[in-house]
Amino acid sequence: MTECPNREIRDLLPELLHGALDGATRSRVEAHVAECVSCREELALLRQVQALAPRVRVDVARIVSALPAPELARWRAWSSHAWQIAAAVVFMAAGGTLVARQMRRAPDADRTRPAVVASTYDSAVGGTATGDVELSVGYDYSELTDAQLQALLKDVEHMSAVPMAEPDASVPAVTVTNGGV
């Protein structure tokens, strides 16, 4: 079989087969098929395939008897939604409780938040202290990037045990009492 280059018409052959074309399109496709041997042969092939479709006997009554009752189907759908709503409520309640607990803890946590005040160490200029900066070690370090963490570690390595500047009064400094922090 030689293939017709008119892909648009070939695409419409199954619709022609099933009588699914509007009047104008159907006339156009039929006119093409009348002139085109390839499309005529392809349409004949599709007709044969359609005719070969397996014929399966279906027991309609048995299927219908197995269907859920309309009320049951509605209840199933509703209960499915109800579970989703209940899960959402539980999730929100748990989340709210967690937030409330965090908020209760927060003031205490701030009072004990450790802070280290140190000088930044400029390795590029050979270890010269270039100024004071606060390095908070406690709750925010997890947000630092790798580069920031590397810089922080470098700073810590060169940090003196004695602070070179006065700590920021607004941030409680680390206090050591009886070996604990």
């Binding site: 397996p54 399966v56 279906v58 027991d59 048995r62 199933r76």
Partner: peptide, 29 residues
């Protein structure tokens, strides 16, 4: 049923068709 058979299914076609409708009618919403 035709589609199921055309896909190569030979066994329990009835059950599969029935399950399809049961599933569909249970989820018509």
């Amino acid at each position: 049923a035709r589609f199921v058979v055309s896909c190569g299914e030979r066994e329990e076609v009835d059950e599969l068709v029935q399950d399809t409708f049961v599933r569909a009618f249970g989820a018509l919403d």
